[in-house]
């Protein structure tokens, strides 16, 4: 057997400089953690923290057993909540689809003007939470379901618009090229070349957003935009903890069901 002597037996993943930098990085991270911990504990009132388990147990005991007869008062607000979520999603889709086509690089009619506007609409809608939209809208159009529906749809534009325009940009250009080579008009290319390719993404995104909207619309009532949140706020204000637990369980059940539906629909599409 011939001995291999001319090749090195040492190989390292990082250069010496890289190793030094990695150690420095970890050191900085530990220092940051220690520093943050110090700031956090400085402002904490330890009496409250020590008290926490007792307080939690106290509220827990007041919440149990849930006052089940209260459920009969909740069906109407639950129906409102579902309506806010569903109508809000539909409204959001209607506004988001044109925005998405304006924002996608391969379908926008003007990269210089319309695309930035569409992107701005998406960012603006995404950066403001539904609860804040609802707060603004309750102030503008008054409390009630309508404010909730509009808040949900305004928040949905950004989410649906962003995911949809990314789906449009990821379409297969060969299929689009083939349709345009037949002499089709721009609209026909959109209809035959692009829309079939984004349909699964479109339904997936829409159902996913509907599922998120169910969760978000349960709390919109806290600021007066109707639905279960209104009842939650009422019960919290009157310290009716056994009613709060019924509402929380109902929200949990609703979210589980909506998530199950959304998972089923998305599974069927993909």
């Amino acid at each position: 057997m011939t001995e291999i002597t001319t090749y090195k037996q040492v190989w390292s993943y990082r250069t010496p400089r890289g190793r030094l930098l990695a150690w420095a990085g970890w050191l900085a991270l530990v220092a940051l953690f220690v520093w943050c911990w110090q700031i956090m504990t400085e402002r904490t009132i330890w009496a409250f923290v020590q008290d926490a388990p007792r307080q939690a147990a106290d509220i827990g005991s007041r919440m149990l057993p849930p006052r089940w007869p209260y459920l009969s008062e909740l069906w109407a607000p639950l129906w409102d909540t579902l309506n806010i979520a569903t109508l809000g999603t539909i409204g959001g889709v209607f506004m988001a689809v044109p925005v998405a086509f304006l924002a996608a690089r391969n379908t926008t009619p003007s990269v210089a003007i319309l695309r930035p506007i569409a992107l701005f609409i998406i960012v603006a809608s995404r950066s403001i939470n539904s609860l804040i939209w609802a707060l603004l809208l309750v102030a503008i159009i008054g409390p009630g379901l309508l404010a909730g529906i509009i808040a949900i749809s305004l928040r949905s534009i950004g989410f649906i618009g962003k995911l949809l325009y990314e789906a449009i940009e990821e379409t297969d250009t060969k299929q689009i090229e083939a349709v345009s080579a037949t002499g089709a008009t721009g609209l026909q290319v959109l209809n035959y070349g692009i829309v079939p390719q984004i349909m699964p993404a479109f339904w997936g995104i829409t159902v996913f957003r509907w599922d998120i909207n169910i969760r978000e619309s349960t709390i919109l009532g806290l600021v007066g935009a109707g639905g279960l949140g209104l009842k939650l706020q009422g019960s919290l204000n009157t310290l009716a903890w056994s009613q709060v637990s019924v509402i929380l369980l109902l929200i949990l059940a609703t979210v589980v069901v909506s998530e199950w539906i959304s998972a089923k629909v998305r599974h069927a599409l993909i």
Binding site: D172, K174, Q175, E177, A178, A181, P196, P200
Partner: peptide, 13 residues
């Protein structure tokens, strides 16, 4: 008429 390398059919139609 044009015929393509990887068919370029609209797959979902």
């Amino acid at each position: 008429g044009m015929i393509f390398q990887e068919y370029a059919l609209v797959e979902r139609l």
